[in-house]
């Protein structure tokens, strides 16, 4: 069980560890035109299967397969070993329901952290106000501002990819998600690679390589699929 405990430690750090090198909300120049940042998100119901790699600054690593079925605001997810053994399975629909959790994954702190990360990856950040702007390096972005001072920036990168930076009420960065996507096409395509970094002492990094993506119609019938 050494691997699973290491994995759990890594993942719990995502929600509980304090900031290591504080990076703060960067200044932006407002743009009068609105940027369509919502285009990075999937519409409707999707199923994604990712190969996951976890690593800590001290070199500890782990691997797993992740399944995410999303239909905003509902998230169903499972974490399994490559041999197919389910380590963790949960459903979130306003309330968190843990369906299966093998020790040491059987705690709500881990489950809550995982759901928060999936929400940050797949759903638009909650916002009172959205500002379109430009950073000092010329990158265009949308800033999603919440009442409590939290915010999230969606930044478009020059290589067609994008980045989400999430900041806490103290304006220090908590998470960075970087996405590698195929050049723009008429149809929305999921990122082929995502990397989540936590700004805490763990130096936690989660690499997600897309194995398959399915757009799901009603009653779980796949209407189209994108297999890599």
């Amino acid at each position: 069980m050494k691997f699973t405990y290491c994995l759990l430690g890594v993942l719990i750090c995502l929600v509980s560890c304090s900031s290591r090198h504080a990076v703060h909300v960067p200044p932006l120049t407002s743009l009068s035109e609105k940027i369509n940042c919502g285009k990075i998100y999937p519409q409707g119901k999707w199923q994604f299967v990712h190969s996951l790699e976890f690593s800590l600054a001290d070199g500890k690593k782990g691997s797993a397969i992740g399944v995410s079925v999303i239909d905003e605001p509902v998230i169903e997810c499972a974490l399994m070993t490559i041999e197919g053994f389910i380590l963790f399975q949960a459903r979130y629909d306003k309330e968190l329901e843990i369906i299966r959790a093998v020790p040491p994954f059987d705690n709500r702190e881990f489950a809550g952290g995982l759901i928060s990360d999936l929400q940050l990856i797949f759903f638009k950040p909650p916002a009172e106000e959205i500002i379109s702007g430009k950073l000092a390096d010329g990158s265009r972005l949308c800033r999603y501002l919440e009442k409590n001072g939290q915010c999230a920036d969606i930044v478009f990168l020059p290589d067609h990819g994008w980045e989400i930076n999430q900041y806490g009420p103290d304006k220090s960065r908590r998470r960075t998600i970087t996405a590698r996507v195929q050049p723009e096409s008429r149809q929305w395509r999921p990122p082929e690679y995502l990397e989540l970094k936590a700004d805490d002492f763990s130096g936690y990094t989660l690499k997600m390589t897309l194995l398959s993506a399915e757009k799901i119609a009603a009653a779980y019938r796949p209407s189209s699929s994108i297999f890599r």
């Binding site: 199923q47 299967v49 397969i65 399944v67 079925v69 169903e76 499972a78 399994m80 490559i82 041999e83 197919g84 389910i86 399975q89 194995l211 398959s212 399915e214 799901i216 779980y220 019938r221 796949p222 699929s225």
Partner: peptide, 15 residues
């Protein structure tokens, strides 16, 4: 051929 069947999966994961 390994097929992982799970209720939330639209298709099994094939390895």
């Amino acid at each position: 051929v390994q097929e992982k069947h799970l209720k939330i999966l639209a298709r099994p994961i094939i390895s």
